[in-house]
Simulated scan of single mutants.
Amino acid sequence: MRALVINGPNLNMLGIREPGIYGTESYETLVRICQDAGRALGFSKVEVFQSNHEGAIIDKIQDAYGTVDGIVINPAAYTHTSIGILDALKAVAIPAVEVHISDVDAREEFRQVSYAGMACFARVTGEGLLGYRHALELLRDRLQD
């Protein structure tokens, strides 16, 4: 099993950006959590990708077609705005889990809409960085069914 973890805008600023919401751990810690969890869960490869650019995220999703078995995606701010990311996820039809570090459902009203989530079979929110491990577990379970 091969997984791709995609992170959207400003996640590279973890540890600096609003630590009261996103915590004090760095993006490098997030990458390590994903790779360690992936190995422990039986993935042969977990690639972690981050971009602040919507088109780069769409390109990465399209490039995943035929090369990965599942996607974990935190589109960040693009969650609430990007029909392009939704369409890319639908086009490749790779099983995907949406993940958010914070509990987006308890935050501002505009965060209540998730376009990307419409193409995902599961959603993990409010579990901090360990939510990525949970998302990878859900993905593994889906791929093993």
Rank of each mutant, 00 (worst) to 15 (best):
G15R: 08
Y78A: 08
S102A: 12
L11K: 13
G42F: 12
C34P: 03
L86T: 03
Y27I: 06
A119C: 07
L130I: 04
A91T: 13
N7A: 03
Q112H: 15
V68T: 12
G131E: 01
E25L: 14
Y22W: 09
Y78G: 01
L14G: 02
E54I: 05
R107A: 02
D36S: 07
N12G: 13
R107H: 02
E127N: 10
E47Y: 01
V72A: 04
D36M: 12
Q62V: 15
G84S: 15
G126C: 00
S44P: 00
T67W: 03
G66P: 02
I73M: 10
V99G: 07
V46E: 10
I101W: 02
G15E: 11
L11F: 13
E137D: 06
R111F: 00
H134I: 13
G70S: 09
C120A: 13
I83K: 00
H100L: 00
A91W: 11
D59S: 15
V68F: 09
Q144D: 15
D69I: 14
I61F: 08
Y65W: 13
L14V: 10
A40V: 11
V31G: 01
S44N: 14
P9G: 01
G84L: 03
S51H: 08
F121D: 07
I83V: 14
A76C: 05
A135L: 12
A93G: 00
A88V: 01
R133V: 07
I73Y: 03
G42C: 10
H53E: 05
G131T: 03
I33D: 04
R123W: 05
T67Q: 15
Q112W: 14
E127F: 11
L30R: 06
D145E: 15
D87V: 04
D59A: 14
Y22A: 09
D63I: 02
V113K: 15
E28P: 04
V104S: 02
